[in-house]
Amino acid sequence: MANSGYDVVVDVDDEGDLGHTDLADLEFHPSIGYNADQASGKMPTSASNTGGFFGSSSSNNRSGDGSSKRFLWTMDFYAQFFDVDTNEVLKRCWAALFPRERFLDVLDGNPDLYGPFWITTTVVLILFLSSTIAQYFARMKDGPYVYDFGLLSGAAGLMYGYTAFVPIALWGVLRWYGSESANLLECLSLYGYSNLIWVPVAIASASNITILNYVFVGVGFGVSALFLFRNLLPVVNATDAKTAKILLVLIIAIHAALALTIKILFFAHGSPVAKKPEGDAAAMMF
């Protein structure tokens, strides 16, 4: 009966005689903890790991098996960072665009890299397509337009580099200054989802109207910077007051540099990363 999740209690008399035990006297008590774990397909709570690989967060505790048994060269090690479904990713995307609560609360101790990877990849492709369309209309009167895939590599280097190295550097600085709440996976997830605003911004910035491009990029910077500031403020404040102020200024300044780079490289009448016809460099407009 143990396979059905029941504990068997048998009444035994003082002499220890089981010979006259009636089956009617057997009492079956459901094992609640076992049934809950068995129905959900999870290991019992006592067998789960409680340690975090990237910090104090419990983000790696949902996989059931001990993370100490996962190695960098195994797929199981990386699978734990993609432990989300489509509905959860959509919920997080919505929370990134229209934040009603802190995004770290939305993550609920389970930050992921699935959403950040595909969001950043989408931004790279949209930047390439939108900037190509903008330059096509800007130069269509000058002759046949030659597609430049240097824009694609430029977008990939910019977005992947920013989304990966900036949060890693921030996490390292926070840990250096004693912030116990700093978590690498949460930093990567936070920066990855903050890129979502650049998808509509890149689409809207395909126009050759310079002032509109500045407005769209400015809106993208404002929304994403506020998102990062709001969620990183409690973590940064775990350091001393002077360090916290410096870090917040650097976070906003680096993010502003990203927005300005996007505007100059991809939404100008002649991108510096694109091949320009001879004599066109002097006519480049920002």
Rank of each mutant, 00 (worst) to 15 (best):
G5L: 08
D7W: 08
D7L: 15
V8K: 01
V10I: 15
D13L: 14
E15V: 15
L18W: 07
G19D: 10
A24L: 14
A24F: 15
H29Q: 08
P30L: 07
S31R: 14
S31Q: 09
I32H: 13
Y34E: 04
Y34N: 06
A39T: 12
A39P: 02
M43F: 15
S48N: 12
T50K: 09
G52W: 01
G52F: 06
F53K: 06
S59A: 12
D65F: 15
S67N: 12
F71M: 02
F71D: 03
F71T: 07
F71R: 03
F71I: 10
F71Y: 06
L72P: 04
M75Q: 06
M75I: 14
M75T: 13
D76M: 08
Q80P: 03
Q80I: 14
F81A: 11
L90S: 04
R92C: 02
R100T: 11
E101A: 14
E101S: 13
L104R: 11
L104Q: 01
L104G: 04
D105A: 03
V106M: 00
D108I: 06
N110R: 15
P111K: 02
P111R: 01
L113Y: 02
Y114H: 07
G115D: 01
F117G: 00
W118E: 04
W118Q: 08
T120S: 10
T122Y: 13
V123D: 01
A134N: 14
Q135V: 11
F137Q: 13
A138Y: 12
A138L: 06
M140F: 13
K141D: 09
D142I: 14
P144N: 05
P144T: 04
V146K: 09
V146C: 02
G154F: 02
G154N: 12
M159T: 10
Y160P: 00
G161C: 03
G161L: 06
A164G: 05
A164M: 08
I168L: 13
I168S: 04
L170E: 02
L174P: 00
R175D: 05
W176Q: 13
G178P: 11
G178K: 13
N183L: 05
L184E: 01
L184C: 00
L190M: 08
G192I: 00
Y193D: 05
Y193L: 09
I197G: 00
P200E: 01
I203E: 03
A206R: 05
S207A: 13
N208Y: 12
T210F: 10
T210K: 06
I211C: 08
V215P: 01
V217M: 08
S224Q: 01
L228E: 00
L228P: 00
R230I: 10
L232Y: 11
P234A: 07
N237M: 12
N237F: 08
T239Y: 01
T239R: 04
D240E: 13
K242W: 10
A244Y: 06
K245M: 03
L248F: 10
I252M: 05
A253T: 13
H255F: 11
A256G: 09
A257G: 10
T261K: 07
F267D: 02
H269F: 09
H269Q: 02
P277D: 07
P277R: 11
E278W: 12
E278D: 09
G279E: 04
A281C: 07
A282S: 09
